[in-house]
Write a protein that binds this DNA or RNA. Structure first.
Lengths: 223, 223
DNA sequence: CTATCCTTTGTGGGAAACCACATAGAGTTC
DNA sequence: GAACTCTATGTGGTTTCCCACAAAGGATAG
Protein backbone atom coordinates (compact mmCIF):
# COMPACT_ATOMS: atom_id res chain seq x y z
CA UNK A 1 0.00 0.00 0.00
CA UNK A 2 1.02 3.62 -0.42
CA UNK A 3 3.44 4.75 2.23
CA UNK A 4 3.67 8.50 1.68
CA UNK A 5 0.45 10.30 0.90
CA UNK A 6 -0.06 14.05 0.59
CA UNK A 7 -3.44 15.73 0.44
CA UNK A 8 -4.35 19.18 -0.91
CA UNK A 9 -7.70 20.26 0.49
CA UNK A 10 -8.54 23.75 1.64
CA UNK A 11 -11.68 23.17 3.67
CA UNK A 12 -10.84 22.34 7.26
CA UNK A 13 -14.05 20.47 7.94
CA UNK A 14 -13.16 18.06 5.13
CA UNK A 15 -9.60 17.48 6.19
CA UNK A 16 -10.49 15.77 9.41
CA UNK A 17 -12.69 13.22 7.70
CA UNK A 18 -10.38 12.49 4.82
CA UNK A 19 -7.24 12.11 6.86
CA UNK A 20 -8.71 9.84 9.49
CA UNK A 21 -10.32 7.71 6.86
CA UNK A 22 -7.13 7.35 4.85
CA UNK A 23 -4.99 6.67 7.85
CA UNK A 24 -7.27 3.82 8.82
CA UNK A 25 -6.99 2.32 5.34
CA UNK A 26 -3.27 2.69 4.75
CA UNK A 27 -1.88 2.41 8.25
CA UNK A 28 0.23 5.47 7.66
CA UNK A 29 0.13 9.16 8.45
CA UNK A 30 -1.12 11.15 5.50
CA UNK A 31 -0.10 14.78 5.33
CA UNK A 32 -2.59 17.49 4.50
CA UNK A 33 -2.11 21.06 3.28
CA UNK A 34 -4.68 23.77 2.79
CA UNK A 35 -3.03 25.53 -0.15
CA UNK A 36 -1.64 24.51 -3.51
CA UNK A 37 1.61 26.42 -3.05
CA UNK A 38 2.33 24.71 0.23
CA UNK A 39 1.55 21.33 -1.23
CA UNK A 40 3.89 21.85 -4.16
CA UNK A 41 6.76 23.01 -1.97
CA UNK A 42 6.29 20.02 0.33
CA UNK A 43 6.49 17.70 -2.66
CA UNK A 44 9.66 19.44 -3.83
CA UNK A 45 11.24 19.12 -0.41
CA UNK A 46 10.37 15.45 -0.28
CA UNK A 47 12.11 14.82 -3.60
CA UNK A 48 15.24 16.58 -2.40
CA UNK A 49 15.23 14.51 0.79
CA UNK A 50 14.83 11.44 -1.39
CA UNK A 51 11.63 10.54 0.38
CA UNK A 52 9.17 11.42 -2.36
CA UNK A 53 5.44 11.10 -1.90
CA UNK A 54 3.86 8.30 -3.87
CA UNK A 55 0.25 9.58 -3.91
CA UNK A 56 -1.30 13.02 -4.22
CA UNK A 57 -4.96 13.46 -3.43
CA UNK A 58 -6.13 16.88 -4.53
CA UNK A 59 -9.24 18.97 -4.57
CA UNK A 60 -9.83 21.22 -7.58
CA UNK A 61 -11.05 24.54 -6.24
CA UNK A 62 -9.44 26.33 -3.34
CA UNK A 63 -10.58 29.17 -1.14
CA UNK A 64 -7.51 31.34 -0.99
CA UNK A 65 -6.32 33.10 2.10
CA UNK A 66 -6.49 36.67 0.85
CA UNK A 67 -3.85 37.89 3.25
CA UNK A 68 -1.07 36.19 1.30
CA UNK A 69 -0.42 35.98 -2.42
CA UNK A 70 -0.59 32.73 -4.30
CA UNK A 71 1.17 31.31 -7.31
CA UNK A 72 -1.04 28.30 -7.88
CA UNK A 73 -4.74 28.80 -7.31
CA UNK A 74 -6.40 25.65 -8.63
CA UNK A 75 -5.96 21.92 -8.30
CA UNK A 76 -5.57 21.65 -12.04
CA UNK A 77 -2.49 23.87 -12.05
CA UNK A 78 -1.13 22.07 -9.00
CA UNK A 79 -1.40 18.69 -10.69
CA UNK A 80 0.23 20.04 -13.82
CA UNK A 81 3.22 21.35 -11.89
CA UNK A 82 3.55 18.26 -9.73
CA UNK A 83 3.53 15.96 -12.76
CA UNK A 84 6.29 18.09 -14.24
CA UNK A 85 8.66 17.62 -11.34
CA UNK A 86 7.63 14.07 -10.40
CA UNK A 87 6.01 12.32 -13.36
CA UNK A 88 5.64 8.95 -11.62
CA UNK A 89 3.55 10.22 -8.68
CA UNK A 90 0.01 8.87 -8.62
CA UNK A 91 -2.76 11.42 -8.52
CA UNK A 92 -6.36 11.07 -7.41
CA UNK A 93 -8.71 14.04 -7.66
CA UNK A 94 -11.28 14.29 -4.87
CA UNK A 95 -13.68 17.07 -5.71
CA UNK A 96 -17.30 18.09 -5.69
CA UNK A 97 -17.04 18.90 -9.37
CA UNK A 98 -19.16 16.55 -11.47
CA UNK A 99 -19.21 18.29 -14.84
CA UNK A 100 -18.23 15.78 -17.53
CA UNK A 101 -16.19 18.29 -19.52
CA UNK A 102 -13.98 19.07 -16.56
CA UNK A 103 -13.49 15.48 -15.44
CA UNK A 104 -12.66 14.38 -18.96
CA UNK A 105 -10.11 17.11 -19.47
CA UNK A 106 -8.26 16.00 -16.36
CA UNK A 107 -7.84 12.47 -17.64
CA UNK A 108 -7.00 13.62 -21.15
CA UNK A 109 -4.58 16.44 -20.45
CA UNK A 110 -3.25 15.79 -16.98
CA UNK A 111 -3.01 12.06 -16.91
CA UNK A 112 -4.53 11.57 -13.49
CA UNK A 113 -5.03 8.09 -12.07
CA UNK A 114 -8.38 8.48 -10.39
CA UNK A 115 -11.34 10.77 -9.92
CA UNK A 116 -13.77 10.62 -7.03
CA UNK A 117 -16.72 12.95 -6.54
CA UNK A 118 -17.39 14.15 -3.04
CA UNK A 119 -20.87 13.11 -2.14
CA UNK A 120 -22.98 10.71 -0.16
CA UNK A 121 -20.44 7.94 -0.36
CA UNK A 122 -17.37 9.91 -1.37
CA UNK A 123 -15.14 8.59 1.38
CA UNK A 124 -15.74 4.93 0.71
CA UNK A 125 -15.30 5.56 -3.00
CA UNK A 126 -12.04 7.32 -2.24
CA UNK A 127 -10.81 4.31 -0.31
CA UNK A 128 -11.69 2.02 -3.20
CA UNK A 129 -9.89 4.34 -5.59
CA UNK A 130 -6.74 4.36 -3.49
CA UNK A 131 -6.62 0.57 -3.50
CA UNK A 132 -7.22 0.41 -7.23
CA UNK A 133 -4.65 3.04 -8.09
CA UNK A 134 -2.14 1.26 -5.89
CA UNK A 135 -2.67 -1.82 -8.06
CA UNK A 136 -1.83 0.25 -11.12
CA UNK A 137 -5.37 0.78 -12.37
CA UNK A 138 -7.12 4.02 -13.03
CA UNK A 139 -10.33 4.43 -11.11
CA UNK A 140 -13.47 6.54 -11.28
CA UNK A 141 -16.28 6.58 -8.79
CA UNK A 142 -19.80 5.78 -10.06
CA UNK A 143 -20.76 9.44 -10.31
CA UNK A 144 -17.76 10.45 -12.39
CA UNK A 145 -17.91 7.22 -14.41
CA UNK A 146 -21.45 8.11 -15.34
CA UNK A 147 -20.37 11.62 -16.23
CA UNK A 148 -17.58 10.34 -18.45
CA UNK A 149 -19.79 7.85 -20.25
CA UNK A 150 -22.34 10.42 -21.32
CA UNK A 151 -22.45 10.36 -25.09
CA UNK A 152 -22.32 14.10 -25.47
CA UNK A 153 -19.14 14.89 -23.60
CA UNK A 154 -18.76 18.01 -25.62
CA UNK A 155 -15.21 19.15 -25.94
CA UNK A 156 -14.47 22.56 -27.34
CA UNK A 157 -11.27 23.46 -29.12
CA UNK A 158 -9.30 26.52 -27.94
CA UNK A 159 -10.69 28.64 -30.77
CA UNK A 160 -14.26 27.93 -29.75
CA UNK A 161 -13.52 28.57 -26.11
CA UNK A 162 -12.01 31.93 -26.89
CA UNK A 163 -14.89 32.85 -29.16
CA UNK A 164 -17.43 32.00 -26.48
CA UNK A 165 -15.47 33.87 -23.84
CA UNK A 166 -15.43 37.00 -25.97
CA UNK A 167 -19.16 36.72 -26.54
CA UNK A 168 -19.73 36.24 -22.82
CA UNK A 169 -17.66 39.33 -22.12
CA UNK A 170 -19.76 41.61 -24.28
CA UNK A 171 -17.92 41.56 -27.60
CA UNK A 172 -20.04 41.96 -30.71
CA UNK A 173 -19.36 39.86 -33.76
CA UNK A 174 -17.40 42.50 -35.62
CA UNK A 175 -15.43 43.34 -32.50
CA UNK A 176 -14.49 39.69 -32.24
CA UNK A 177 -13.40 39.81 -35.86
CA UNK A 178 -11.14 42.79 -35.20
CA UNK A 179 -9.78 41.16 -32.06
CA UNK A 180 -8.89 37.98 -33.93
CA UNK A 181 -7.24 39.94 -36.73
CA UNK A 182 -5.12 41.81 -34.19
CA UNK A 183 -4.09 38.58 -32.50
CA UNK A 184 -3.46 36.84 -35.81
CA UNK A 185 -6.03 34.16 -35.05
CA UNK A 186 -7.82 32.58 -38.00
CA UNK A 187 -10.49 32.40 -39.24
CA UNK A 188 -11.27 35.98 -38.42
CA UNK A 189 -13.72 37.34 -40.95
CA UNK A 190 -17.02 38.61 -39.61
CA UNK A 191 -18.72 36.03 -41.76
CA UNK A 192 -16.72 33.06 -40.48
CA UNK A 193 -17.25 34.04 -36.88
CA UNK A 194 -20.94 34.15 -37.60
CA UNK A 195 -20.73 30.61 -38.94
CA UNK A 196 -18.76 29.34 -35.97
CA UNK A 197 -21.37 30.72 -33.62
CA UNK A 198 -24.14 29.21 -35.67
CA UNK A 199 -22.44 25.82 -35.57
CA UNK A 200 -22.07 26.03 -31.79
CA UNK A 201 -25.74 26.95 -31.47
CA UNK A 202 -26.63 23.85 -33.44
CA UNK A 203 -24.28 21.59 -31.48
CA UNK A 204 -25.76 22.73 -28.20
CA UNK A 205 -29.32 22.87 -29.47
CA UNK A 206 -29.63 26.51 -28.49
CA UNK A 207 -32.34 28.68 -29.98
CA UNK A 208 -30.42 31.90 -29.37
CA UNK A 209 -26.82 32.84 -28.75
CA UNK A 210 -27.87 34.02 -25.32
CA UNK A 211 -29.01 30.51 -24.51
CA UNK A 212 -25.79 29.13 -25.95
CA UNK A 213 -23.73 31.13 -23.49
CA UNK A 214 -26.05 30.13 -20.66
CA UNK A 215 -25.55 26.47 -21.55
CA UNK A 216 -21.78 26.48 -21.86
CA UNK A 217 -21.63 28.53 -18.68
CA UNK A 218 -23.58 25.84 -16.87
CA UNK A 219 -21.32 23.10 -18.19
CA UNK A 220 -18.24 24.92 -17.00
CA UNK A 221 -16.82 25.01 -20.52
CA UNK A 222 -15.66 28.60 -20.45
CA UNK A 223 -14.61 28.95 -16.85
CA UNK B 1 -25.43 25.48 25.44
CA UNK B 2 -27.55 23.76 22.83
CA UNK B 3 -28.58 20.30 23.89
CA UNK B 4 -30.18 18.84 20.77
CA UNK B 5 -28.47 19.61 17.48
CA UNK B 6 -29.33 18.21 14.06
CA UNK B 7 -27.14 18.54 11.01
CA UNK B 8 -28.09 18.23 7.34
CA UNK B 9 -24.98 17.58 5.25
CA UNK B 10 -24.81 15.20 2.34
CA UNK B 11 -21.07 14.78 1.91
CA UNK B 12 -19.76 11.98 4.09
CA UNK B 13 -16.23 13.31 4.25
CA UNK B 14 -17.59 16.50 5.82
CA UNK B 15 -19.83 14.85 8.34
CA UNK B 16 -17.02 13.30 10.32
CA UNK B 17 -15.26 16.61 10.80
CA UNK B 18 -18.34 18.63 11.63
CA UNK B 19 -19.81 16.18 14.10
CA UNK B 20 -16.63 15.58 16.05
CA UNK B 21 -15.95 19.27 16.20
CA UNK B 22 -19.43 20.13 17.42
CA UNK B 23 -19.53 17.34 19.95
CA UNK B 24 -16.33 18.63 21.47
CA UNK B 25 -17.79 22.11 21.78
CA UNK B 26 -21.23 21.27 23.09
CA UNK B 27 -20.59 18.12 25.08
CA UNK B 28 -23.54 16.46 23.41
CA UNK B 29 -24.20 14.06 20.56
CA UNK B 30 -25.21 15.91 17.41
CA UNK B 31 -27.21 13.96 14.90
CA UNK B 32 -26.41 14.09 11.22
CA UNK B 33 -28.49 13.20 8.17
CA UNK B 34 -27.43 13.07 4.55
CA UNK B 35 -30.74 14.12 3.01
CA UNK B 36 -33.19 16.95 3.47
CA UNK B 37 -36.22 14.66 3.62
CA UNK B 38 -34.70 12.57 6.37
CA UNK B 39 -33.75 15.66 8.32
CA UNK B 40 -37.25 17.09 8.14
CA UNK B 41 -38.90 13.87 9.24
CA UNK B 42 -36.49 13.56 12.16
CA UNK B 43 -37.40 17.08 13.24
CA UNK B 44 -41.10 16.24 13.00
CA UNK B 45 -40.64 13.11 15.07
CA UNK B 46 -38.76 15.05 17.70
CA UNK B 47 -41.59 17.54 18.03
CA UNK B 48 -44.12 14.76 18.48
CA UNK B 49 -41.93 13.14 21.13
CA UNK B 50 -41.71 16.54 22.79
CA UNK B 51 -37.96 16.51 22.53
CA UNK B 52 -37.54 19.07 19.78
CA UNK B 53 -34.17 19.98 18.39
CA UNK B 54 -32.96 23.43 19.31
CA UNK B 55 -30.42 23.95 16.51
CA UNK B 56 -30.34 23.01 12.84
CA UNK B 57 -27.08 23.27 10.94
CA UNK B 58 -27.69 22.87 7.25
CA UNK B 59 -25.79 22.82 4.01
CA UNK B 60 -27.44 24.38 0.97
CA UNK B 61 -26.79 22.03 -1.94
CA UNK B 62 -27.26 18.30 -1.74
CA UNK B 63 -26.14 15.47 -3.95
CA UNK B 64 -29.24 13.35 -4.19
CA UNK B 65 -29.26 9.60 -4.12
CA UNK B 66 -30.82 8.99 -7.51
CA UNK B 67 -32.20 5.59 -6.52
CA UNK B 68 -34.90 7.16 -4.38
CA UNK B 69 -37.17 10.11 -5.00
CA UNK B 70 -36.95 13.29 -2.99
CA UNK B 71 -39.41 15.92 -1.89
CA UNK B 72 -36.94 18.51 -0.67
CA UNK B 73 -33.80 18.92 -2.70
CA UNK B 74 -32.12 22.05 -1.34
CA UNK B 75 -31.19 23.43 2.03
CA UNK B 76 -33.24 26.54 1.29
CA UNK B 77 -36.44 24.52 0.98
CA UNK B 78 -35.54 22.48 4.04
CA UNK B 79 -35.10 25.59 6.17
CA UNK B 80 -38.37 26.99 4.89
CA UNK B 81 -40.29 23.88 5.85
CA UNK B 82 -38.58 23.52 9.20
CA UNK B 83 -39.33 27.12 10.14
CA UNK B 84 -42.95 26.45 9.28
CA UNK B 85 -43.36 23.58 11.70
CA UNK B 86 -40.98 24.86 14.39
CA UNK B 87 -40.54 28.63 14.16
CA UNK B 88 -38.37 28.92 17.25
CA UNK B 89 -35.63 26.56 16.10
CA UNK B 90 -32.29 28.23 15.52
CA UNK B 91 -30.72 27.77 12.10
CA UNK B 92 -27.14 28.12 10.98
CA UNK B 93 -26.23 27.60 7.34
CA UNK B 94 -22.85 25.98 6.74
CA UNK B 95 -22.13 26.04 3.05
CA UNK B 96 -19.44 26.61 0.47
CA UNK B 97 -21.69 29.16 -1.18
CA UNK B 98 -20.24 32.67 -0.94
CA UNK B 99 -22.37 34.59 -3.43
CA UNK B 100 -23.71 37.72 -1.73
CA UNK B 101 -27.11 37.50 -3.41
CA UNK B 102 -27.73 34.02 -2.07
CA UNK B 103 -26.50 34.72 1.45
CA UNK B 104 -28.54 37.89 1.66
CA UNK B 105 -31.72 36.19 0.51
CA UNK B 106 -31.39 33.63 3.29
CA UNK B 107 -31.29 36.28 5.98
CA UNK B 108 -34.03 38.34 4.35
CA UNK B 109 -36.54 35.66 3.44
CA UNK B 110 -35.75 32.73 5.70
CA UNK B 111 -34.78 34.41 8.87
CA UNK B 112 -31.72 32.32 9.59
CA UNK B 113 -29.58 32.97 12.65
CA UNK B 114 -26.13 32.44 11.22
CA UNK B 115 -24.17 31.84 8.06
CA UNK B 116 -20.73 30.28 7.90
CA UNK B 117 -18.78 29.64 4.72
CA UNK B 118 -16.90 26.40 4.48
CA UNK B 119 -13.30 27.24 3.92
CA UNK B 120 -9.87 27.42 5.45
CA UNK B 121 -11.20 28.15 8.90
CA UNK B 122 -14.79 27.10 8.47
CA UNK B 123 -14.92 24.80 11.47
CA UNK B 124 -13.64 27.31 13.97
CA UNK B 125 -15.99 29.92 12.54
CA UNK B 126 -18.82 27.44 12.90
CA UNK B 127 -18.00 26.94 16.56
CA UNK B 128 -17.97 30.69 17.13
CA UNK B 129 -21.32 30.97 15.36
CA UNK B 130 -22.89 28.28 17.51
CA UNK B 131 -21.86 30.10 20.67
CA UNK B 132 -23.11 33.43 19.38
CA UNK B 133 -26.42 32.06 18.20
CA UNK B 134 -26.88 30.36 21.54
CA UNK B 135 -26.59 33.79 23.15
CA UNK B 136 -29.37 35.03 20.91
CA UNK B 137 -27.24 36.89 18.39
CA UNK B 138 -27.09 36.40 14.68
CA UNK B 139 -23.66 35.59 13.37
CA UNK B 140 -21.81 35.66 10.08
CA UNK B 141 -18.29 34.45 9.46
CA UNK B 142 -15.79 36.97 8.02
CA UNK B 143 -16.23 35.68 4.49
CA UNK B 144 -20.00 35.96 4.46
CA UNK B 145 -19.89 39.24 6.39
CA UNK B 146 -17.70 40.65 3.68
CA UNK B 147 -20.09 39.33 1.04
CA UNK B 148 -23.07 40.92 2.76
CA UNK B 149 -21.36 44.29 3.14
CA UNK B 150 -20.58 44.67 -0.52
CA UNK B 151 -22.30 47.80 -1.69
CA UNK B 152 -23.69 46.31 -4.84
CA UNK B 153 -25.60 43.36 -3.39
CA UNK B 154 -27.84 43.35 -6.38
CA UNK B 155 -31.23 41.97 -5.64
CA UNK B 156 -33.57 41.18 -8.48
CA UNK B 157 -37.32 41.20 -8.14
CA UNK B 158 -39.29 38.13 -9.27
CA UNK B 159 -40.24 39.78 -12.54
CA UNK B 160 -36.64 40.41 -13.45
CA UNK B 161 -35.61 36.91 -12.48
CA UNK B 162 -38.26 35.41 -14.68
CA UNK B 163 -37.35 37.67 -17.56
CA UNK B 164 -33.70 36.71 -17.31
CA UNK B 165 -34.54 33.04 -17.03
CA UNK B 166 -36.63 33.17 -20.19
CA UNK B 167 -33.81 34.93 -22.02
CA UNK B 168 -31.33 32.33 -20.78
CA UNK B 169 -33.62 29.60 -22.02
CA UNK B 170 -33.71 30.84 -25.58
CA UNK B 171 -36.87 32.96 -25.63
CA UNK B 172 -36.85 35.94 -27.97
CA UNK B 173 -38.25 39.26 -26.85
CA UNK B 174 -41.59 38.85 -28.62
CA UNK B 175 -41.89 35.28 -27.30
CA UNK B 176 -41.37 36.63 -23.82
CA UNK B 177 -44.07 39.18 -24.48
CA UNK B 178 -46.52 36.46 -25.54
CA UNK B 179 -45.55 34.32 -22.57
CA UNK B 180 -46.19 37.14 -20.13
CA UNK B 181 -49.52 37.94 -21.74
CA UNK B 182 -50.57 34.29 -21.41
CA UNK B 183 -49.56 34.21 -17.77
CA UNK B 184 -51.16 37.57 -17.06
CA UNK B 185 -47.85 39.08 -15.96
CA UNK B 186 -47.37 42.79 -16.48
CA UNK B 187 -45.76 44.69 -18.07
CA UNK B 188 -45.86 42.51 -21.11
CA UNK B 189 -45.57 44.63 -24.23
CA UNK B 190 -42.62 43.91 -26.49
CA UNK B 191 -41.54 47.47 -25.94
CA UNK B 192 -41.57 47.32 -22.15
CA UNK B 193 -39.67 44.08 -22.09
CA UNK B 194 -37.08 45.73 -24.27
CA UNK B 195 -36.82 48.52 -21.70
CA UNK B 196 -36.52 46.15 -18.76
CA UNK B 197 -33.69 44.34 -20.46
CA UNK B 198 -31.99 47.61 -21.26
CA UNK B 199 -32.26 48.71 -17.64
CA UNK B 200 -30.75 45.43 -16.45
CA UNK B 201 -27.90 45.82 -18.94
CA UNK B 202 -27.20 49.25 -17.48
CA UNK B 203 -27.43 48.07 -13.88
CA UNK B 204 -24.94 45.30 -14.52
CA UNK B 205 -22.75 47.36 -16.80
CA UNK B 206 -23.15 44.85 -19.60
CA UNK B 207 -22.39 45.80 -23.18
CA UNK B 208 -24.64 43.12 -24.64
CA UNK B 209 -27.53 41.04 -23.40
CA UNK B 210 -25.32 37.99 -23.82
CA UNK B 211 -22.90 39.45 -21.31
CA UNK B 212 -25.79 40.30 -19.01
CA UNK B 213 -26.85 36.66 -18.85
CA UNK B 214 -23.25 35.60 -18.34
CA UNK B 215 -22.96 37.98 -15.40
CA UNK B 216 -26.17 37.05 -13.61
CA UNK B 217 -25.33 33.41 -14.21
CA UNK B 218 -22.03 33.88 -12.47
CA UNK B 219 -23.66 35.61 -9.51
CA UNK B 220 -26.14 32.79 -9.09
CA UNK B 221 -29.04 35.18 -9.53
CA UNK B 222 -31.08 32.99 -11.86
CA UNK B 223 -30.27 29.56 -10.48
C1' DC C 1 -3.91 16.71 -63.25
C1' DT C 2 -8.73 16.53 -62.25
C1' DA C 3 -12.61 15.87 -59.58
C1' DT C 4 -14.23 16.47 -55.17
C1' DC C 5 -14.67 18.00 -50.60
C1' DC C 6 -14.22 21.26 -46.96
C1' DT C 7 -13.32 25.69 -45.02
C1' DT C 8 -13.17 30.58 -45.47
C1' DT C 9 -15.08 34.59 -47.12
C1' DG C 10 -18.38 37.56 -49.73
C1' DT C 11 -23.18 39.55 -50.77
C1' DG C 12 -27.79 40.76 -49.96
C1' DG C 13 -32.08 40.31 -47.77
C1' DG C 14 -34.88 39.60 -43.77
C1' DA C 15 -35.41 39.20 -38.68
C1' DA C 16 -34.39 40.53 -34.21
C1' DA C 17 -32.59 43.71 -31.20
C1' DC C 18 -31.48 48.35 -29.96
C1' DC C 19 -32.38 53.23 -29.47
C1' DA C 20 -34.54 58.10 -29.60
C1' DC C 21 -38.57 60.55 -29.32
C1' DA C 22 -43.27 60.79 -27.98
C1' DT C 23 -47.93 59.86 -25.78
C1' DA C 24 -51.14 58.16 -22.21
C1' DG C 25 -52.30 56.97 -17.69
C1' DA C 26 -51.43 56.26 -12.58
C1' DG C 27 -49.89 58.08 -8.58
C1' DT C 28 -47.90 62.26 -5.70
C1' DT C 29 -47.42 66.77 -4.00
C1' DC C 30 -48.94 71.08 -3.06
C1' DG D 1 -57.36 70.00 -9.49
C1' DA D 2 -52.85 71.52 -11.55
C1' DA D 3 -48.10 70.44 -11.93
C1' DC D 4 -45.05 66.79 -11.61
C1' DT D 5 -43.05 62.27 -11.86
C1' DC D 6 -42.81 57.59 -13.17
C1' DT D 7 -44.07 53.65 -15.75
C1' DA D 8 -46.02 51.35 -19.73
C1' DT D 9 -46.52 51.54 -24.43
C1' DG D 10 -46.28 53.09 -29.36
C1' DT D 11 -43.60 54.49 -33.78
C1' DG D 12 -39.91 54.71 -36.77
C1' DG D 13 -35.20 54.34 -37.73
C1' DT D 14 -30.54 52.21 -37.10
C1' DT D 15 -27.58 48.52 -35.88
C1' DT D 16 -26.65 43.96 -35.16
C1' DC D 17 -27.53 39.46 -36.06
C1' DC D 18 -29.15 35.57 -38.73
C1' DC D 19 -29.56 32.96 -42.95
C1' DA D 20 -29.50 31.34 -47.99
C1' DC D 21 -26.78 31.30 -51.98
C1' DA D 22 -22.38 31.41 -53.98
C1' DA D 23 -17.40 32.03 -55.23
C1' DA D 24 -12.47 31.28 -54.11
C1' DG D 25 -8.77 28.63 -52.13
C1' DG D 26 -6.62 24.60 -50.04
C1' DA D 27 -6.46 19.60 -49.22
C1' DT D 28 -7.15 14.98 -50.76
C1' DA D 29 -8.21 10.83 -53.55
C1' DG D 30 -8.06 8.65 -57.79
Amino acid sequence: MFKRIIIAEDIDSENLGIVSSINALTQTEAETNQSCDKTLSRIKEAIIKEQPYDLLISDLSFNLDTRISHNITTGKELIHQVKNIQPDIKVIVFSGEDKPAIIKSLFDSYNINGYVCKGLYGLSELKKAISQVYLGNTCTCPVSKHALHQSNVTQLDPYEVQLLKLLANGYKQDEISLHFIEKGIEPNSKRSIEDKIRKLRQDFDAKTTIQLIHLVDGMGLIS
